[in-house]
């Protein structure tokens, strides 16, 4: 770690600099060793975190998320039965539970987006962006815009909150009825874990850099 004078930074070409998106601290962008992370000294935001085979992992995990999401919306999710009455609900039923009418319909639209559409769309966007990079090809048309969308949508992907919501709901229901778990429940739980790990580990800087250099 050398003590570069502040004026030196201004002399560098702009594409060798990196500014912390959270606190605007300016650094010279240096790729740290594989597996280690460059962190903002002032606010500790992770700036660069290269991994070996990062693109391949991203592709495999994103594909897994897509497959699991398709499974999670098709297979039975949860079921209850009490005193001879039983009911099953799929993930889609759960999301569309507010479709009774009026303003509540809007809430169903939000829930469908937060727990199904946005997580799925983000996985597809990452595939679209990263697949050509893995093969060393030029990025597809609009790859930068696609990655930008994926980043902007990040806070609105709420699959992990939904699965914790399931845990809370099931404790409430357990008093009332017997609960059955369908295959979709486990698929959804798995896709939550993958999505969260992927978001934590993704090295955004490397992807932006690759998109800039190859297109």
């Amino acid at each position: 770690m050398s003590m570069t004078e502040a004026t030196d930074l201004a002399d560098l070409p702009l594409d060798e600099l990196i500014a912390c998106p959270q606190c605007d601290a300016l650094y010279r962008a240096r790729m740290p060793a594989m597996g280690s992370r460059a962190v903002c000294k002032r606010c500790h935001t992770v700036l660069i975190a290269p991994k070996t085979n990062a693109y391949l992992h991203l592709i495999v995990l994103s594909l897994t998320v897509v497959v699991l999401m398709v499974g999670a919306v098709t297979f039975p999710f949860l079921g209850v039965n009490v005193a001879g009455f039983s009911n099953k609900a799929s993930v889609v039923d759960t999301a569309l539970t507010f479709m009774d009418g009026g303003w509540m319909v809007a809430l169903s639209m939000f829930v469908v987006a937060f727990i199904i559409l946005i997580p799925l769309f983000r996985a597809l966007l990452v595939l679209y962006v990263v697949a050509p990079l893995t093969l060393g090809r030029r990025p597809f048309l609009g790859a930068r815009r696609a990655f930008g969308w994926s980043e902007d949508l990040r806070p609105w992907s709420m699959a992990e909150i939904f699965i914790i919501g399931c845990a809370v709901a099931l404790v409430k229901v357990a008093d009332l009825a017997k609960v059955e778990f369908g295959p979709a429940f486990f698929m959804f739980a798995a896709l939550v874990v993958i999505t969260v790990l992927q978001d934590i580990n993704m090295d955004r800087w490397s992807i932006w850099k690759a998109l800039e250099e190859t297109s």
Partner: peptide
Amino acid sequence: MEGAGRDIVSARSEGLVACRRCT
């Protein structure tokens, strides 16, 4: 990360504008 040592400068003070999405 090579930076300004203890005296951290901001992109703004260097006459630069930073992108908050891609840094």
